[in-house]
Write a protein that binds this DNA or RNA. Structure first.
Lengths: 174, 174, 174, 174
DNA sequence: AATGAATGAGAATTCATTCAT
DNA sequence: AATGAATGAATTCTCATTCAT
């Protein structure tokens, strides 16, 4: 993933990967049928793992307010701890999005369903669901991206999470 | 740009481009020294053009409120009229960001300076400038991106712009 | 010729030549039908010109001794004055030698015929004609080449010519 | 080397080489990083090998007279046995000469040092060292070259070596 | 199961030559 | 007659994948 993030997927060769992994080029093919499939596995495993965790987190909370807080806080901490995963998922998103099935856990869909339920229960004012979910995802992702790459943002992770949570409440008009 | 957006930059061959352009492969090299440079030119020309237009638009307005409205509205209209340009800029961003000089007009910096001035004039509550600018950019871009790619969002462009403007005001606590 | 000598014939492009000559690429084709033909013309014109001059010089002298002195002295002076020609002829020799007809004036053949006549008149001891001519050509060319390229040899042209003439006499056993 | 000698280095394609070698084009690049580097390796390996052998040969002899005889005789035999190598070194000389370091064994320098020592020991009359060495190299190389390419010289290798040795003694005034 | 040399299709790029202006 | 943009065949080189060891 580091290599894919640093150089881009197409620009990373199988030799690069094998060297970095300390194995022979041919050995890679014992684990993945192709470079393309490796990139996909890396994407889907991490993407769905985060989706699954987010889902558990939101289910553990009662109110929409608390659910949003929990999942945003998790978002911030997981990417603080593993910027490479965040960057990879961010980078590979467009290429792999279409291959995701609706059955697979999906962070975007977790946010979406939390917001949908919030609207259903009257905790969030009625509004276009996908617009709302996109706005929330966007403001969070962009800030994390800026923090990781742009080096502009120097807030601690705790206060950053709080900032994003408050902003999310305001965007959703909670 | 269409080809780059459809297939990805690395996946688009010079032959693809030449064929689509109705010229010979060698002819491309009379206009651009390499495929890489072509991708960069396509990026920088359009990116700075949008940056320059945004800057003019915000200067034509008095209040921060109006400035934000004008530039978000433009964002929505440009993507509506030139979805390919918008997508290309979105796609190529990570690859080319580092090569941009601070002198070149830059949409992100326009948003950032409007927010900075708003805070200076007391029109926007004091907050971390780059976090605020990132949140605003993020919520706008993600929604447009979802509309273009995800096919989830079907609102008309007019009401979408208004939605984004209102969300921006709320995020910034105006 | 400078370009051909500096970079090699294959490595010099028509664009290089046109630029150096201050003309357009297409214009070159008004003067020469191809780059290959240009290289050939450059070779044959200079090669035969030197051959013709050498022939006149040897005819103006009576004795083999004097003939050899005259043509070696000319060799030294012409290359002292135009190192580029020497280098070009030296460089292009192998490529173009086969295309020379026996009718065309040829420096090697002038040396050869002077030596042949010298042997016929008893001025030079009998020996293998082509071996003798090659040895003489070789010792002269290599020294001039070393002087031009290798920068090892710093003798003045006058004394160098004398040295080569004396060496030629000794090699031929005159 | 055969291909380079027959067609010239620039005129020989990687495909030609791979086909002649009975390997795939890509395989060549597992052995040499570029065609250019292949040409250089072919040059330097053979050039220094001959230089090293010449050096051993001259050290095995006591007198300058014997040293010159031994190295010239070797020159004649190596070209007889490996005309392709000889031709290749002759052909590639100008392109690669500048990349040779003074540390690498070098046939020219062997001749030069034998002559220098000969002058130091009074076995060869005092004269300009580099002029003398160039003349000797030139007369030998040109004859061998003529024999290989020009098809003019048909002497047996034994008598040719003797002829060149005697000519060398005369040129050096031994 | 691991290796890494070999493969060969396909990529970017070059450049001698042509030709409309 | 000169120009220089356009051409496209040919070239070098890359690299995902295969396969004998």
């Amino acid at each position: 993933m580091s290599l894919f993030v640093e150089k881009g997927i197409a620009e990373t060769t199988v030799r690069d990967i094998a060297t970095a992994a300390g194995i022979a080029e041919g050995t890679l093919y014992r684990h993945y049928p192709s470079k393309e499939e490796l990139a996909w596995q890396l994407f889907v495993v991490n993407f769905t793992a985060i989706g699954a965790t987010l889902n558990e987190l939101q289910r553990a909370e009662k109110t929409t307010h608390a659910k949003l807080g929990a999942i945003i806080r998790y978002f911030c901490s997981v990417f603080e701890q593993d910027a490479v995963i965040f960057n990879y998922l961010f980078l590979a998103r467009h290429q792999h999005m279409l291959r995701l099935t609706p059955r697979q856990p999906n962070p975007y869909l977790v946010f979406r369903s939390v917001i949908r339920e919030g609207m259903a229960h009257g905790e969030i004012p009625k509004q276009d669901l996908d617009v709302a979910a996109s706005m929330v995802m966007g403001l969070i992702l962009q800030v994390i991206d800026a923090r990781i790459l742009g080096r502009r943002i120097h807030q601690g992770i705790e206060s950053l999470a709080d900032t994003l949570i408050q902003a999310t409440y305001r965007v959703l008009n909670i």
